[in-house]
Simulated assay, not measured.
Amino acid sequence: MRIAIIADAGSVHTRRWVWGLKQHGHDIRIWSERAWDDFDHGVVHLLPKALRFRRDVPVAVWQLRREIPQFSPDIIHAHYISHYGLLAALARLSPPLVMSIWGADIECFPKRHGLLSRRLTQWILGQADAITCSSHYLKTISARYTKKPLRVIPFGIDLQRFRPHPPNQGPVRFIINKALEPVYGIDLILTALKDVQGDYVVRILGEGSQRQTLLSLAKTYHLEDRIIWVGKVGLDELPDVLAWGDVGLYPSRRESFGVAPLEMMALGRAVVAHRLGGLTEVINDNVTGFLVEPDNIQAWQQILQQIVDDPSRIRQMGEQGPGWVASRYNFDENLTSMIALYEQLRLTKISQKRKTKI
């Protein structure tokens, strides 16, 4: 099939879908604000950068109307409805349109400008021929804005890259793999760790606007000797870097799915996360990890102390992760489900054309 992707080419999630589709032999073109420098020349078409009051939209829509018909796709797939989904809806192109909801585009955008945002969300979804969500949590929220069928197709895990690793030995190793931004709640972990006694070490991956604030907080709590700030990690290195840890910590204040904890579990590592959003789906509480009530620093302190006191338990829990992930979040199976949806829409479109001719 020929598939036009309207999405952020700079996102790892977009790239995984595109690579997977290409490996299945599909012809792909991408329309995106951000480039994908190491991808095939001519595959990524750059859209104008977003401007204040969305003054970029008319030019972007005109570009889609001009360029996508030249590609003559069987399917158009727009990812993230409040931006790329809006552009695809306004372009009103003839191939079947799939829209994928990612998270903040349905959790936050409809509330941004009151009734206007809600109505716009309803209208965007109304233009789709099929709608997918990465979690049942998102499906529940999305159902407030459309009566159309909603399919759950997760951002699965590449089980060839994220394979089980042998358990570690020695003192507990905590790892945090999220951007250093307020929404991911890393400050909560630092506050909880200040009262945890015993031998442990922490690695924090990623960059973000809160870096200096978090460094200062760690210094205030006298945690400098326990924490290693790793910074950005390349995709090729990520599985081995994550496997260094015994347990991943995810104190997100909002989380629509949970790719990061799934990657940890696939490696044979346990996780601890807030009991909210999509995290409640991806983590099997008391089996592959623990769920903590949101913003309960005392509960975080208690569970982290238990882990430090008895590392063997959390390492045994980690061994349950690979089977859990493989049975529910295998990327190859998720990709197959998406391709089957494309094929269904393509055949329906062909059937409708035949009926029109008759």
Rank of each mutant, 00 (worst) to 15 (best):
S32V: 03
L116E: 12
L86K: 14
E67H: 05
A130S: 14
C133W: 02
N286W: 07
H13S: 15
F71G: 10
M264C: 15
R29F: 06
E107N: 12
K353N: 14
F155S: 07
I6P: 09
P69F: 10
M317T: 08
W31F: 10
V18E: 00
R269P: 09
H83Q: 14
R254V: 09
V308C: 11
E343Y: 06
F162D: 00
L347D: 12
S351I: 04
R2W: 04
G289D: 01
K22D: 04
H79T: 05
V271F: 02
I175M: 08
G258V: 00
L159T: 02
I5K: 00
L159R: 03
L279C: 00
W123K: 00
P322L: 08
D158R: 03
W17E: 08
H165R: 09
A299F: 05
Q212V: 08
L120S: 00
L249D: 01
G198N: 06
H77F: 07
E33G: 14
L188E: 13
E343P: 05
D40L: 09
S72R: 11
L279P: 03
V57K: 00
D27C: 03
A104V: 03
K178V: 12
W19H: 13
R2V: 09
V230Y: 00
K194I: 01
S142C: 15
T288R: 00
K49Y: 09
A266C: 08
S72V: 07
Q70M: 15
I30M: 15
I3C: 14
I186H: 15
I176M: 15
A88G: 04
Q70T: 11
A60C: 14
H26Y: 02
E263C: 07
D38E: 13
G10I: 07
Y221C: 12
Y329G: 06
H165N: 04
S216A: 13
H45F: 11
T336Y: 04
D225K: 13
H136M: 03
R144E: 15
L116S: 13
